[in-house]
Design a binder for these strands. Structure first.
Lengths: 159, 159
DNA sequence: GCACAGTCACTGCACGAAGCAGTGACTGTG
DNA sequence: CACAGTCACTGCTTCGTGCAGTGACTGTGC
């Protein structure tokens, strides 16, 4: 049974390469949709129902509201999303993903999803449970790590 | 036992969010190092010994050699890498990562690696084997999907 | 041994994405 | 009804990247 230190070492070696291929895939999907990686990121946040508020989206993307306004302009021009006025507060706006373009997004993910689905089918219940749990934790850990890194951004390492 | 269709559906829902958090983490690490995501990607390629050829690195990053020259300029100025002349062919160059800065990179990854290591320690052999195999396949699949997307980039979807 | 095409890294120029700072519309509170 | 706060939006600037062209160098054919 491998101990924790060995596992951490393995993870340290594997993780960066894994992250890199993931980023590369994400970028390729974005290119195919004709958008930047940040725009794709935004699209997925909206599409998966995390939020539809521009200010909140800007925060999640690490952008200023000004930059996000331009991003919205581009995405609306590309017919990926539309701006919907908020009936309760006329300062506000809601961002809605256009279903017809979402199909394209799903399509671009399909080859990867399909291959991974095949792979998953070779696992038994316990293995699947471990995997699902691990992926959920990884997502949370990555988000947390990203947030922590952003928070302490100014100055510490600069040298 | 869940069938393949169900698994693919689950994967389709989970994957984009997982990819997004990963990208977000990668971007945060890059910001902390004071480099762009592309530069970090390059750094990892060099550091992990994939290649040290500028032309090859540019290809892997999806950049032109011109753009890559600028990228190298910035990374060399940031003391992340250095240009080393190739003794065999005086047109050529080799890119070498600076070990002292590589420690910082490892450090930035450490929190994530640590948490995932802890999680891994709760799994048994069969579960670990499944996970390792799945991650390896995912990396390969993501790379392949990215390459395919890049290859067929021009025109098909544009409408 | 010498010209010549090919390769490699590097340099103007242009464009696009994003930060910063400021503006105008709108909200809720005293 | 005045006033501070919020929200999205607009100049201006900076920076990363693509494109096209340049100069140094290589190996091959004559």
């Amino acid at each position: 049974m491998p101990n924790q230190r060995e596992l951490a070492t393995t993870a340290a070696l594997t993780l960066p390469r894994f992250v890199s291929s993931t980023v590369r895939f994400h970028t390729a999907v974005a290119d195919r949709l004709g958008v930047t990686p940040a725009e794709l990121h935004c699209l997925q946040l909206v599409h998966s129902g995390v939020t539809d508020s521009p200010t909140e989206l800007a925060r999640l993307l690490g952008l200023t509201t000004g930059a996000f306004t331009r991003l919205l302009d581009r995405m609306e021009r590309a017919r990926l999303v539309e701006r919907v006025p908020d009936p309760g507060d006329r300062r506000r706006l809601r961002v809605r993903a256009r279903p017809e373009r979402m199909a394209e997004l799903t399509e671009l993910y399909a080859p990867l999803v399909g291959r991974l689905g095949e792979k998953l089918a070779t696992f038994d219940r316990r293995q699947l449970a471990a995997l699902v749990s691990f992926l959920a934790d990884s997502e949370a850990a990555a988000d947390r790590a990203a947030t922590e890194l952003r928070r302490g951004e100014s100055g510490e390492i600069a040298g």
